[in-house]
């Protein structure tokens, strides 16, 4: 008996063992970085094209210390987040109207169904003409690109809200805002979150694209300008900052989703 108990205890992995396994699982990243380092130092490829990692890290540190990174990063973040939050607010309202109101549905549904596969980025030159080269045209484009997935997902979610729940609430005397906040939004929340999760990376992508096309501020501009002036280390440092923002956005949203939708078991977490 005692032996069996001891065996049982031994089979439980110790805490450092678990952590070691988790770190070991990340070995492909180390493989890729090592390959990069070896190629960069081998001299096959000019350092003007592929700088070694330590140079990129040094550049990253210098840009952070000089405040360049914070300045450009803040501008990029601001554009992405303003357009994205506006799209959330308008998208949820529009999606609700599309699902609940017949006239709005008739007028707007064709626009959303047929407009979905069309790349909205092709409208950007017109937005530049209308709103100018500055922040406004970029924010409007981010807003428009994010609006589509959020609106359509909200519409699906609101449509599939259970009739019985809506009827019960209406029978109990709920209407208008109360029905919206207490019944419709909670039952459509998983769908709305799915739309937001699609829109979040889009907001960053579109902001970067607009900064590549024409701008003198923002991280996308730094990548474009540094590449054009053959400073790949600087471009890669800015790209690393963009990557970190994208990764951070994704992780914080899935964290938020777990907190907000605790009743939903099938959270789309990346295992």
């Amino acid at each position: 008996m005692a032996d069996a108990a001891a065996d049982f205890r031994d089979e439980r992995p110790s805490l450092p063992g678990v952590w070691l396994q988790r770190v070991w699982r990340l070995y492909p990243i180390a493989v890729v970085l090592a390959a990069w380092e070896i190629i960069a130092h081998s001299g096959f490829i000019s350092p003007l094209l592929l700088p070694p990692i330590e140079k990129v890290a040094h550049e990253f540190w210098q840009m952070t210390a000089s405040g360049d990174m914070a300045f450009h990063g803040a501008i990029t973040l601001q554009r992405a987040l303003i357009g994205f939050s506006a799209a959330i607010i308008v998208g949820i309202i529009l999606g609700t109207a599309l699902a609940r109101n017949r006239i709005v549905n008739r007028v707007l549904e064709p626009i959303f169904i047929f407009g979905y596969p069309i790349p909205k980025i092709s409208l950007y030159p017109i937005f530049i003409f209308v709103f100018g080269f500055g922040d406004m045209s970029k924010i409007v484009l981010v807003f428009l690109e994010c609006l589509y997935p959020i609106t359509i997902q909200t519409m699906h979610g609101m449509r599939s809200a259970e009739r019985v729940l809506v009827w019960t609430a209406q029978n109990a005397g709920a209407s208008g805002m109360r029905l919206f906040w207490r019944v419709l939004v909670p039952s459509a929340a998983p769908a709305i979150f799915a739309g937001i999760r699609i829109a979040l990376p889009i907001s960053m992508i579109v902001t970067i694209i607009t900064e590549l096309i024409g701008e003198s501020r923002g991280l996308g501009y730094v990548v474009a300008f540094a590449s054009a002036s053959f400073e790949p280390a600087r471009a890669m440092a800015a790209f690393a900052a963009i990557a970190m923002i994208g990764f951070f956005f994704d992780r914080s949203l899935s964290w938020l989703r777990k907190k907000a939708l605790y009743w939903q078991a099938d959270a789309p977490a990346f295992s």
Binding site: P201, I209, V223, F249
Partner: peptide, 26 residues
């Protein structure tokens, strides 16, 4: 899958279009 999973989960949320100017240089 063990090889690709960490790489994909790291790179997937990154806006990869930002690398476009570097690709133009290469």
């Amino acid at each position: 899958s063990r090889f690709y999973e960490p790489l994909v989960s790291l790179i997937y949320p990154v806006p990869k279009v930002a690398i476009l100017p570097l690709i133009f240089v290469w």
